[in-house]
Design a protein around this nucleic acid. Sequence first.
DNA 1: ATAAACTTTCAATAATTATTGAAAGTTTAA
DNA 2: TTAAACTTTCAATAATTATTGAAAGTTTAT
Lengths: 167, 167
Amino acid sequence: MQYQEAKEKFISTWGSLGTLWGINKAMAQIQALLFISTKSLSMEDIMEELKISRGNTSMNLRQLMDWGIVTKVLVSGERKEFFTTEKDVQELARIVAKERSRREIKPVIKVLDEVSSIKNDGTEKTKELIKQTKALRELTDDLDTLMNKLVNQKQNWLTKSVFKLMK
Amino acid sequence: MQYQEAKEKFISTWGSLGTLWGINKAMAQIQALLFISTKSLSMEDIMEELKISRGNTSMNLRQLMDWGIVTKVLVSGERKEFFTTEKDVQELARIVAKERSRREIKPVIKVLDEVSSIKNDGTEKTKELIKQTKALRELTDDLDTLMNKLVNQKQNWLTKSVFKLMK
DNA sequence: ATAAACTTTCAATAATTATTGAAAGTTTAA
DNA sequence: TTAAACTTTCAATAATTATTGAAAGTTTAT
């Protein structure tokens, strides 16, 4: 496999994996392209490489910047904007975990709290609803906490003590 | 908030959260309905509660059974089939984690391996591609391993030692 | 063997989500 | 101030994904 093929394979795989970390295909592909690029890229560069429209590129770059994954870089002597992504995978994971927690998990916990605190009228079905939503709330909360803790250990978090402990 | 409202809120929230654990809306809603139900339900029951068609119900129930989340139960004296879901949240998490690892994460690791093992022709861009896909491969693999380990600790895995260690 | 009771399949359709491209908006240089 | 260079916006459209419903298939009771 040569460079070009490998690059395309990486970009398309990472793109379709986007759903796993909660973002859309174009967004993931732009990030993937920047991730393996040795220099920052302009909108023009990205459009050309990924064969997507200007509008699409603009919107998805903005979203990536909202997530804090991509940043603008000023290239002296150039008028147009250039973009780069966080290059450290662990920092990337930290950002993604934090954002998903904030955007998706926290709101769900809130709803589960509301649902599990309805008045217990003593009926079987009400008891079951309360019991099960409470259990789910706790699990979701635990997973969220764990994820954030893991991911906030900036140095070697995975390969160090936690990991060994669990052998 | 009364029972009916709480129930609907739970089902719709859990349904839209489906993407977070990688399944579609109807599938997640069926699972949610079964999860808070005190007895097993027939296809008819599910169709009626969720206002979805017979075909949709049938297909999504089959998928849930493929995942190993839902099982048929035989109700004596009844000809039609009844369904129930795993009621223990931790066991549920275990199943979901295992399936997602198998269906999504493992295949990605395979591609990252292929890409990162291309011939190093010494150019900057090739070195970058190899370096970054290797880093991503390791992170993905570590997260996958960790997830599986966590989730295979059947008893109190979250609230016990791991959790305390990370305080 | 037959028919009633039930489930599955799948082509058609609907709903949702992503993408385009051109007009409007903004910034910079002269 | 003007105009060129660039970015953003958003209505229209395309692509994708989910859902329906009726025909085909299966199982069970008699």
